[in-house]
Write a protein that binds this DNA or RNA. Structure first.
Lengths: 212, 212
DNA sequence: CTACAAGCGGAGTGATCGCTCCGCTTTTCG
DNA sequence: CGAAAAGCGGAGCGATCACTCCGCTTGTAG
C-alpha cells in the first residue's frame, strides 16, 4: 500500500541485529516456500532463519505480508529484466525477456501462486507492463511477431509457463524451456488467425486483484 | 489401487438411499471444489449434498478418496473425448481433442490440481496416452503438426492450459481458447526447431506419481 | 407386519495452523 | 559505563480442519 514511504514511515531505523534478522527471514521464507510451497508453516521459516516466530511477527505483521514482500522482490527483478531486454537487437528483446523472466521464476517458484495476484496499481507491475508493450511493438516492427498478438496475450503466456514450471519443478526443472520454444513458434508470423478475442486489460486487472 | 474389484469387494450392495447419497456427495463435491477449490471443507460438501459429514465418511474413507473418485471420472471422460477425436478427418483429431478436453477441464476445474498426480498405471491414463499418440501420428501424417513434436510435448501443453484455466477461471472462463490457438499455431510445421529436448516418458511418469 | 441390519446426523476429538504475549537479553548512545 | 529502548524466544491461545462415535431412524427380507 504505502510502498513509497516504507523506510520513512518506520519509527526511525531498525536496530542492526533486527535488520539482519529481517533479511535472514526473507531468505529463509524464499527457500522454504520454494521447497514445500506456500503452505509451509511459519515455525519452519523461523527455524531455518535461526530465530523465533515472535521475531518473524515483529518484522512482518502477517505471513501474508511476508509473502507480499517476496512477490514484490520478484516483480522488481522482472522489471529490471524487461528493461535489460530493450537493448537486444532486431526485435529479439521480447524473446529474451520471456526467457530470462521464466528462468527467474523457475528459481523463485515459492511465491508464484501469489505472483499474479498483486494490485494492478503496483508500481513494479506498471513498469513491467509498459516495458513489455514496448518490447512487443519492437518485435512486431521487426517482423518477429504476428500483428494480432496483444500485450494481454503475453500475460496469458506467462501464466501458462508458470503452470509448466510448477508442474515439472521437481522432475525436470528446465522443461519450461521447450514449452516456451513452442509458444515462441506460435507467436511467429504466417500462422492462421487465432480466432478468439484477446483478454481485455480490465480482465487482466481483475485477475491481478483477485486475492484468492 | 484395487480399482478392478471395486464393486465386488463391497459387502454386497448399497442400500437404495445410501447409493443415492453417494451420487449426491460426488455431485456436491464437484460443485463445491469448482467454486472454492480443493481447500473446501468436508462440512460444506456434506451440507450442499444435504447429508451429514458422517454419511460422507461412510461412503468415502477420506476426503482424498473422494477427490480421487472425481479425478477418475474426469480421466475417463477425457479418454472418451480422445477416442471420439480419432474419427475426425484430415489429421484434425488432435486439435479437436485438445479443444474438447480443455473445455471439459474448464467445466470441471475443481479437481484439476490433482488431475495430473494419478498413478501412471491408471487404466484411463494409459488409454488416453495411447489414443493421443495415435492422434499425434495421424496429425503428422497429414502435415498438420511439425515432426519434432512428441507425445510428452502434448502432455506439457495440457499442463500449461490448466494454468491458464485456473488463473482466468473467474474473470474470463473462455480465455484458454485463445491460448490454445496460440499453442496450436506453434505446433504447425515450418517453424524453427524448438531447440530443447522434450520430456522423457519417465519424467512424465514421475510427475504423475508425485502425490504433492 | 416385524425385526434387524444398514444408514443416518452432527456433536465431539485431536492435530495443526497463524498469531500473541511477556519475562529476559542485547544494542545503542550520552 | 549504565540506563533505557528495542529486540528476542517460544509457550500458549483460539480457530479451523479432517475425521470418529454413538444414539436414533429407515429400508428391506422373510
Amino acid at each position: 500500500m504505502t510502498q513509497a514511504s516504507d523506510v520513512v514511515s518506520r519509527p526511525r531505523q531498525l536496530r542492526r541485529d533486527a535488520a539482519e534478522n529481517r533479511e535472514l527471514l526473507l531468505a529463509a521464507a524464499a527457500q522454504v516456500f520454494a521447497e514445500v510451497g506456500l503452505g509451509a508453516g511459519v515455525e519452519e521459516i523461523a527455524r531455518v532463519a535461526g530465530v523465533g516466530v515472535g521475531t518473524l511477527y515483529r518484522r512482518f505483521p502477517t505471513k501474508e505480508a511476508l509473502i507480499a514482500e517476496l512477490v514484490q522482490d520478484v516483480l522488481e527483478k522482472m522489471s529490471v529484466l524487461a528493461e535489460q531486454a530493450v537493448a537486444a537487437p532486431d526485435g529479439r528483446g521480447l524473446e529474451q525477456f520471456l526467457e530470462s523472466s521464466s528462468a527467474y521464476q523457475a528459481e523463485h517458484r515459492g511465491c508464484l501462486p501469489k505472483l499474479w495476484h498483486t494490485s494492478p496499481d503496483n508500481e513494479a507491475v506498471v513498469r513491467v507492463r509498459r516495458t513489455i508493450a514496448a518490447l512487443l511493438a519492437e518485435a512486431k516492427r521487426h517482423g518477429q511477431v504476428r500483428e494480432d498478438i496483444t500485450a494481454t496475450d503475453l500475460t496469458m503466456l506467462m501464466w501458462s509457463i508458470r503452470g509448466v514450471i510448477e508442474t515439472t519443478r521437481d522432475v525436470a526443472p528446465e522443461a519450461w524451456r521447450r514449452h516456451l520454444a513452442l509458444l515462441v513458434a506460435g507467436l511467429r508470423p504466417a500462422g492462421t488467425p487465432l480466432g478468439h478475442r484477446p483478454l481485455t486489460r480490465a480482465q487482466v486487472d481483475q485477475v491481478l486483484a483477485d486475492p484468492t
